[in-house]
Nucleic acid binder design. Structure first.
Lengths: 181, 181
DNA sequence: GTCTATATTTCGATAGAC
DNA sequence: GTCTATCGAAATATAGAC
């Protein structure tokens, strides 16, 4: 709290005035962060574009956004890991206004898209959940594991940025390539 | 320290006797954990099997191991994120005895494998680093983000185990499928 | 609303008996 | 090696002036 107050340019008493307890402050900070973890992703998935374009849009959107907030995934993951009660806030934050109907809103259109392509013989079958998890993994993991990857691959900040820039180009083809029949 | 002592069935004084400071204990715990994050992965990659078999082996090995230690990725990621100085210990732990030559030992054979297949027209080009990052992402991310995914997908522990079991079957085909020419 | 000053609690480290 | 008891520091919460 001392450190936060100092960085904010105020004192602990003022933090207490606004948030009462450290836990309240942590919750408020988490809610803010969670609200921007997948900013456009859900909107894109629930939207009307072609599936191939959705993938490209999500990759670009997510990598650009996380490049500007590289600590976000690590923070969210760490917080939800250490405090399981944050899980509720997380889905609430992602869903925005409408709280509980988030899953059908995402997976309904996604499943329809996939089914149509499978029926047309232009895509191999995949569960919508797997589709989502794999896409998130490829986009988010490098940021979540950023310091680890930098150590493993011997990269500095610039090298990591280059790695992400390359992924922006490669990932859509990689991901969609995996789903070819 | 109190909590750790209680779970260990001893008291704080004994922890102090063995580890002197909290930082020493944290370091020792991290070194242990880091040593088993990618137990066989490096051995497999540096080994002599066919590339397709290496992928299948790594997926099976990693998902089985992490199923038994699901908190491991979240812990490692959190620790390295909050304390960058852990990065050194991490690569040291992964490399085992031979400390600094870990990258050529992994990426040398991997690059040769990929190049041969690209030359033969049976694989589309991919940088060894991308190969590694994508494979790690697909294997490790679901565990790192476990509580998040459980909340998003509405899974309990059993449901998550099923998700992982399905990935064991799906991932090799997904990953190798992405690399078809 | 914002501050200074302080009370209260928690935690890491240590002393010393056995 | 393992314990009980306690010190000292740090952090969180609170009181009260402005």
């Amino acid at each position: 709290m001392q450190e936060i107050a100092r960085e904010a340019g105020v004192n602990q008493a003022l933090l207490h005035y606004y948030f009462r307890t450290k836990e309240h402050l942590a919750q408020a900070a988490f809610a803010r962060a969670a609200a921007q973890l997948m900013p456009g992703v859900i909107a894109v998935l629930a939207g009307a574009a072609r599936l191939e374009d959705k993938v490209a849009q999500i990759v670009a959107l997510e990598l650009d956004h996380l490049s500007r907030a590289p600590y976000l995934p690590g923070y969210i993951i760490g917080e939800v890991t250490h405090r399981p009660e944050r899980a509720r806030d997380l889905i609430a934050a992602m869903a925005g206004q409408r709280a509980e109907d988030i899953r059908p809103r995402i997976f309904g259109p996604l499943k329809a898209d996939i089914d149509a392509r499978v029926a047309a013989g232009t895509m191999r079958p995949i569960a919508p959940q797997s589709f989502m998890v794999n896409l998130m993994a490829l986009c988010i993991f490098p940021f979540a594991a950023r310091p680890m990857l930098m150590a493993m691959l011997g990269l500095d900040a610039g090298g990591f940025a280059q790695l992400i820039a390359r992924r922006r180009d490669e990932l859509p083809a990689f991901f969609l390539g995996a789903l070819r029949p």
